[in-house]
């Protein structure tokens, strides 16, 4: 029985196996190459002066502190706004929405939002936030654009965590005479935490890596500002600064320093996402 596999079949199996190993190896090799290459090119050029000062044309030097701060500001502003919106939408969907048509419309809208490319967000953000609402080219306009982009993510992760709320808890509370709002406040919302934390990590990752949506909304400014001043003025995040330095100014050393920082951030975000996932899973299984 065992020896009866024909030569042709054995050959096909060997080819398929080889292709599988090769594809998986190519995928891994690409990641390793990109990470190692960027770190090798970027890390040696990281100096304290570069990351702690702002650029100056007079002294002909570059500093990326403003870009780092802008990234922090925009993450903060976007998250503060998107978290209540996304979590609220998820609560509405799981607790209130009864009409299947409404549910379908909301889910369809969320799917549509997650499929729209960031350049289109950038354009609409520019038209709506910068021009129509009068924010001008500013970090705040950029943050609001990012809010729309990240809404589906927060909504989805919160919804996932709400699905795990045991029905008995809610029924028990209703049975004891609690109103809907009380049940949501005391039983449903605390269960959102998992989803919100996961959604936060994913959103931070997406915001850190975003550039196309910010080009025309947040702009290219390199001034050193405090958070409130910063949000109301134009500012480049790390990714936008990388693009400007590499494409427009040919400053590849600085570009690689920024790229190395971005890679390290990506690694940290990935690790935290998987740690958070594991932690919540083990807690839930208790």
């Amino acid at each position: 029985m065992l020896g009866k596999v024909s030569k042709k079949r054995r050959f096909n199996i060997a080819v398929l196996k080889a292709l599988m190993y090769l594809s998986a190896a190519v995928t891994c090799a690409l990641v390793v190459f990109i990470i190692v290459y960027v770190l090798a090119k970027g890390v040696p050029n990281i100096t304290w002066e570069l990351i702690s000062t702002k650029p100056s044309y007079l002294q002909n030097k570059i500093g990326i502190l403003p870009d780092i701060l802008n990234t922090v500001y925009i993450i903060f502003a976007a998250l503060v706004i998107v978290l209540p919106l996304g979590a609220g939408a998820a609560v509405y969907l799981t607790e209130y929405a009864k009409n299947p048509k409404v549910v379908r419309a909301i889910e369809f809208a969320a799917e549509t939002l997650s499929g729209i490319p960031s350049i289109i967000y950038g354009l609409v953000g520019m038209l709506f936030f910068c021009q129509f609402l009068g924010f001008g080219t500013s970090l705040m306009a950029g943050a609001l654009t990012l809010v729309i982009m990240n809404l589906p993510t927060i909504m989805r992760t919160t919804q996932e965590s709400l699905k795990t709320v045991p029905k008995g808890y809610k029924e028990g509370a209703f049975g004891l005479g609690a109103g809907k709002w009380r049940v949501i406040r005391t039983i449903v919302l605390p269960e959102c935490v998992d989803g919100i934390v996961t959604g936060c990590i994913l959103s931070v990752g997406r915001i850190v890596g975003e550039s196309a949506a910010l080009l025309f909304t947040a702009g290219f400014g390199h001034a050193l500002n405090g958070i409130f001043e910063g949000l109301s003025s134009s500012g480049a995040t790390l990714t936008v600064a990388l693009y400007v330095y590499a494409k427009e100014q040919g400053e590849f050393e600085v570009a690689f320093v920024i790229a190395a920082i971005l890679i390290v951030l990506t690694l940290i975000i990935n690790i935290s996402a998987s740690l958070a996932g594991k932690y919540f899973k083990s807690r839930r299984n208790k």
């Binding site: 690409l30 850190v208 690689f256």
Partner: peptide, 25 residues
């Protein structure tokens, strides 16, 4: 789990970094 980590990193790398590496390599 190793390859899955690699895949999620690939998804997480910002597009400007792809652009930079593409531009210079």
């Amino acid at each position: 789990s190793l390859v899955s980590t690699a895949v999620s990193l690939l998804a997480g790398i910002p597009s400007v970094v792809y652009g930079l590496v593409g531009m210079l390599v």
